[in-house]
C-alpha cells in the first residue's frame, strides 16, 4: 500500500518534471497543477457531472436492452439443442465484429446522438452476455434438473427454482464482462458519433482546442469510474450473490 503510494508519487513527479522541461509544448503535456485546475473547474460548473451522467445513462440503457435480448436467447440456446444449432453460427459470425466498426453506419442510419451510441453499447455487450448465459445454462449439473423433474417440477417451476439460480453466477460474470465492453464502446462511440454530452465527447472536443489538460482530467475521471465499477460495484454484487451462495470457488483479487 505504502509502496504503491510511493510509486504513484514518483510517477507524478516524473510527469511534472517532463511537463515542465519543455520537451513537448506546455499545451500538449500540461503540468499536474493545470490538469487539477481543469478538473476542479469542470466540477465547479457541474459540466463533468453532466458528461458523466450522459455516459452512464447510455451504458445503463444499453446494458438493459442487451440483458433483455441475451437472457432469453441464451436460455433457449442452453436448454434446447435445436436453438443452439440454429443460433450458434450466427453468433460466431457476428461476435468478432468490433462494435465500433458499426459506428459510421449507425450514424448514417440514426443520426448523431443517443440512439446511435446506445445501439453501439447494445451491440458491444449483447454477445458476451449471451455467451455467458448460454454456457451457464448448458453447464448446469444435469442431475439437478433431472432430480427436479422427478419431483414433478416442470416449466416455470423448474426454471424459477433450478435453472435460474444455477445459471445466475455465469449471468453475473457476463454482466461484468459486458460492462467492460460497454464502457469501451460508449467512449469510442462518443468519440466517433459525437453526441452533445458524454465523457468521450468531452475528450474529442478538448482535442479540437488543444486542451490537453481537459483531456487528461477526463481520462482521470474515466479511470476512477472504471476502477469504481470493477472493484466496488461488481465485487459487492458478487459477494452478495455468487460468493454468499457458495457457488464461486476460491477467493478472487
Amino acid at each position: 500500500m505504502l509502496r504503491g503510494a510511493i510509486t504513484i508519487a514518483l510517477l507524478l513527479a516524473a510527469w511534472e518534471y517532463f511537463a515542465r522541461s519543455g520537451i513537448f509544448s506546455r499545451a500538449i503535456t500540461p503540468p499536474l497543477e493545470t490538469i487539477a485546475v481543469a478538473l476542479v473547474s469542470m466540477i465547479a460548473d457541474g459540466s463533468i457531472f453532466r458528461h458523466t451522467l450522459a455516459t452512464m445513462l447510455r451504458v445503463a440503457i444499453g446494458l438493459a436492452i442487451a440483458l433483455a435480448i441475451a437472457i432469453p436467447l441464451g436460455m433457449l440456446m442452453g436448454r434446447y439443442a435445436l436453438w443452439e444449432r440454429i443460433l450458434r453460427p450466427a453468433v460466431a459470425v457476428l461476435m468478432p465484429i468490433p462494435s465500433l466498426a458499426w459506428v459510421p453506419l449507425v450514424v448514417l442510419w440514426f443520426g448523431i446522438g443517443n440512439v446511435a451510441t446506445v445501439l453501439i453499447v447494445v451491440y458491444a455487450s449483447t454477445f458476451s452476455l449471451l455467451y455467458n448465459v448460454w454456457m451457464g445454462v448448458k453447464t448446469i449439473n444435469p442431475i439437478w434438473v433431472r432430480a427436479a423433474q422427478v419431483m414433478n417440477a416442470h416449466g416455470w417451476r423448474l426454471f424459477r427454482h433450478v435453472i435460474w439460480p444455477a445459471a445466475l453466477p455465469s449471468i453475473i460474470t457476463g454482466i461484468r464482462l459486458a460492462f467492460g465492453r460497454a464502457w469501451i464502446a460508449v467512449i469510442g462511440g462518443e468519440l466517433l458519433a459525437s453526441p452533445q454530452w458524454g465523457l468521450g465527447k468531452l475528450i474529442f472536443d478538448a482535442k479540437e482546442f488543444l486542451n490537453a489538460d481537459t483531456m487528461l482530467a477526463a481520462l482521470f475521471v474515466i479511470g476512477v469510474l472504471g476502477l469504481f465499477f470493477e472493484r466496488v460495484v461488481f465485487q459487492l454484487l458478487e459477494r452478495a450473490t455468487v460468493n454468499r451462495w457458495g457457488m464461486a470457488s476460491g477467493a478472487r483479487r
Binding site: R3, L100, I184, L191, K207, A212, L219, I222, G223, G226
Partner: peptide, 29 residues
C-alpha cells in the same frame, strides 16, 4: 515483490480505461 507493489496500483488504474479514450491525446502527442 517490490516491482509488484510498485506497479500494481498503476496497472489497476490504467487497465479499466478504454484504450480508445487515449486516441485524441496520442494524436496531439
Amino acid at each position: 515483490q517490490w516491482i509488484e507493489d510498485a506497479l500494481l496500483p498503476i496497472v489497476s488504474f490504467m487497465y479499466p480505461i478504454p484504450g480508445i479514450a487515449y486516441a485524441p491525446l496520442f494524436v496531439l502527442w
